[in-house]
Computed example of a mutant assay.
Amino acid sequence: MEISAHCSFCEHKEFDFAKGNLCGLTSQKADFIRKCSKITFDENAKEEIAKINLEYKFLQDQKTKVIGHLILFSIIGVSVILADIYFTQVLYEAGWISTGSVIGIAFGIGFIGYAFTPYIKYTNTNSVVKSQKQRMDNFFSLYDYSYDINYEDENYLTAVTLRRSKQKIR
């Protein structure tokens, strides 16, 4: 994880338009290897945790709707195509030749495309958000912290509980 990502969770972060992210303790750019010995977690960390986890939870809640949409409109699309093929055969046997079959197949393909659009968007967004959550969880495990979230609480400061996850052995 980049050094600036550590700073986004720290309470000591400061921002200067000329220099970028600075450490509030030293007024210099952060300079450490792997992890910062002076990092402090409180409001900034809770805000980032809440933001990433709420987005992750929202996507998980959308999964059933997206899959239902995919199944429903795929079935409609395939049904339109099959019905079009059947009616085209019936009309041909009756002596009619029609371009309606092309239009019916186009509508069927349109329904199938409509079925897959939200699913593709969901999978792309889900992979990004899962990656963000995984990086954040790895980040906190680097500092031996874990967190709990009460999704019912609308105030992220009280909804997120940070705690040490491991006892240090001396």
Rank of each mutant, 00 (worst) to 15 (best):
1 M>H: 09
4 S>L: 10
6 H>Q: 08
9 F>I: 05
9 F>S: 03
10 C>D: 01
16 D>H: 07
16 D>M: 11
16 D>P: 04
17 F>G: 13
18 A>Q: 15
19 K>A: 01
19 K>R: 11
24 G>W: 05
25 L>T: 08
30 A>C: 09
31 D>Y: 00
32 F>K: 10
37 S>M: 00
39 I>A: 06
40 T>K: 15
41 F>N: 14
41 F>W: 09
44 N>M: 07
46 K>L: 01
51 K>D: 13
52 I>L: 14
57 K>H: 08
58 F>M: 14
58 F>K: 15
60 Q>D: 11
64 T>I: 09
79 S>D: 14
80 V>Y: 06
81 I>V: 01
81 I>K: 00
82 L>T: 12
83 A>M: 07
85 I>M: 08
87 F>V: 09
90 V>D: 08
90 V>G: 00
95 G>W: 10
97 I>T: 13
97 I>W: 09
97 I>F: 10
102 V>Q: 07
105 I>L: 12
109 I>Y: 10
110 G>Q: 06
110 G>Y: 09
111 F>S: 05
113 G>V: 15
113 G>P: 08
115 A>Y: 00
117 T>L: 14
120 I>L: 12
120 I>R: 11
120 I>N: 10
121 K>V: 07
125 T>N: 13
125 T>G: 04
127 S>T: 10
127 S>W: 01
129 V>L: 02
130 K>N: 15
130 K>L: 08
131 S>Y: 05
134 Q>N: 08
134 Q>A: 10
134 Q>E: 12
138 N>H: 06
142 L>C: 01
143 Y>K: 07
150 N>W: 11
150 N>E: 15
151 Y>G: 02
156 Y>A: 02
161 T>Y: 12
166 K>F: 04
168 K>S: 11
168 K>D: 08
